[in-house]
Amino acid sequence: VTLFVALYDYEARTEDDLSFHKGSKFQILNSSEGDWWEARSLTTGETGYIPSNYVAPV
């Protein structure tokens, strides 16, 4: 499992996005959609889309 960590805070703009804070960790579920990845937050357990340029591999 590849884990990613948030580099910045992000406020969701749609109900499909995940809001998160810098330092939040994610499991990436689908990275084939270009700049928006489907991810599960390891902090909240919620699933949604995150901007790929806001995260980096742990």
Rank of each mutant, 00 (worst) to 15 (best):
Ser32Ala: 11
Glu46Val: 08
Ile28Asp: 00
Ala39Glu: 00
Ala12Asp: 02
Ile28Lys: 04
Trp37Pro: 00
Ala56Thr: 11
Ile50Ser: 01
Pro57Ser: 07
Glu33Cys: 14
Gly48Lys: 01
Ala12Pro: 04
Lys25Ser: 07
Tyr54Lys: 06
Tyr54His: 08
Glu46Cys: 10
Leu42Met: 11
Pro51Asn: 08
Glu11Thr: 13
Ser32Lys: 10
Gly45Gln: 06
Gln27Glu: 14
Val55Lys: 01
Leu3Ala: 06
Tyr54Phe: 11
Lys25Asn: 06
Thr14Ser: 13
Arg40Asn: 04
Tyr49Thr: 07
Thr14Ala: 12
Val5Ile: 13
Ser41Met: 11
Ala56Leu: 08
Tyr10Asp: 00
Asp35His: 10
Ser32Glu: 11
Ala6Val: 01
Leu42Trp: 08
Thr43Cys: 12
Ile50Trp: 02
Ile28Gln: 01
Ile50Asp: 00
Thr14Cys: 15
Val5Asn: 02
Gly45Arg: 04
Ser41Phe: 06
Thr44Ile: 02
Glu33Leu: 14
Thr14Gly: 15
Asp16Cys: 15
Arg13His: 10
Leu3Met: 10
Trp37His: 03
Asn53Gly: 11
Tyr8Ser: 06
Tyr10His: 05
Gly34Ile: 11
Thr47Ile: 14
Leu7Glu: 03
Ala12Ile: 02
Ala39Thr: 01
Phe26Leu: 08
Asp16Ala: 14
Leu42Val: 11
Ser24Lys: 04
Arg40Cys: 09
Arg40Phe: 13
Asn30Val: 08
Lys25Asp: 02
Asp9Cys: 09
Ile28Thr: 01
Ala6Phe: 01
Tyr54Trp: 07
Gly23Gln: 02
Val55Phe: 09
Tyr8Leu: 08
Gly34Lys: 13
Thr43Val: 11
Trp37Cys: 04
Arg13Glu: 10
Asn53Ser: 14
Ser24Tyr: 14
Gly48Tyr: 04
Tyr10Met: 02
Ser31Lys: 13
Val58Arg: 03
Leu7Phe: 03
Leu18Ser: 01
Phe26Cys: 03
Val5Tyr: 12
Lys22Val: 10
Phe20Glu: 00
Leu3Thr: 09
Phe4Val: 11
Ala39Pro: 01
Val55Gly: 01
Leu29Thr: 07
Ser19Asp: 04
Pro57Gln: 08
Val5Gln: 07
Asn30Phe: 07
Gly23Phe: 05
Tyr54Leu: 11
Thr44Phe: 03
Phe26Ala: 00
Gly34His: 12
Asn53Leu: 09
Val5Asp: 02
Ser31His: 10
Asp17Trp: 11
Gly23Trp: 05
His21Ser: 14
Glu38Ser: 08
Lys25Arg: 12
Leu7Ala: 02
Arg40Ile: 13
Asp9Asn: 08
Arg40Val: 11
Thr44Pro: 01
Tyr10Asn: 02
Trp36Thr: 06
Ala12Leu: 02
Ser52Ala: 13
Arg13Ser: 11
Glu33Arg: 15
Thr14Phe: 15
Ala6Lys: 01
Ser24Cys: 14
Val5Leu: 07
Lys22Gly: 03
Thr43Gly: 08
Arg13Cys: 13
Ser41Gln: 07
Leu3Gln: 07
Thr44Cys: 05
Val1Gly: 13
Glu11Cys: 14
Gly34Ser: 13
Gly45Thr: 03
Thr44Asp: 06
Val58His: 08
Leu7Asn: 03
Glu11Gly: 05
Gly34Asp: 13
Ser32His: 10
Leu29Arg: 04
Asn53Val: 09
Val55Leu: 12
Tyr10Val: 01
Ala56Val: 14
Gly48Arg: 02
Phe20Thr: 00
Tyr54Asn: 03
Tyr54Ala: 12
Ala56His: 09
Thr14Tyr: 15
Ile50Val: 09
Leu29Asp: 04
Tyr10Ser: 02
Arg13Phe: 08
Ser52Leu: 04
Trp36Val: 07
Tyr10Phe: 09
Val58Ala: 09
Tyr10Ala: 01
Leu18Ile: 11
Asp35Ala: 11
Gly23Thr: 02
Ala6Cys: 03
Ile28Phe: 03
Tyr49Val: 07
Gly23Ile: 02
Tyr49Pro: 02
Val58Ser: 07
Asp16Thr: 14
Val5Thr: 05
Thr14Trp: 14
Ser52Trp: 09
Val1Gln: 13
Arg13Lys: 13
Asp35Gly: 12
Arg40Glu: 06
Ile50Glu: 01
Ile28His: 00
Thr44Trp: 03
Gly45Asn: 08
Ser41Trp: 04
Val1Glu: 13
Ser19Gly: 07
Arg13Thr: 13
Val58Asp: 09
Asp17Met: 14
Ser19Ile: 02
Leu7Ile: 10
Phe26Pro: 00
Pro51Ile: 03
Glu38Thr: 11
Gln27Cys: 12
Pro57Trp: 05
Asp16Ser: 14
Val1Ser: 12
Ala6Arg: 00
Ser19Arg: 04
Pro57Gly: 05
Pro57Met: 09
Ala56Ile: 13
Asn30Cys: 09
Asp16His: 15
Lys22His: 06
Thr47Phe: 07
Asp16Pro: 04
Arg40Ser: 05
Glu33Asp: 15
Val1Cys: 15
Gly45Val: 01
Gly48Leu: 04
Asp35Asn: 09
Asn30Trp: 07
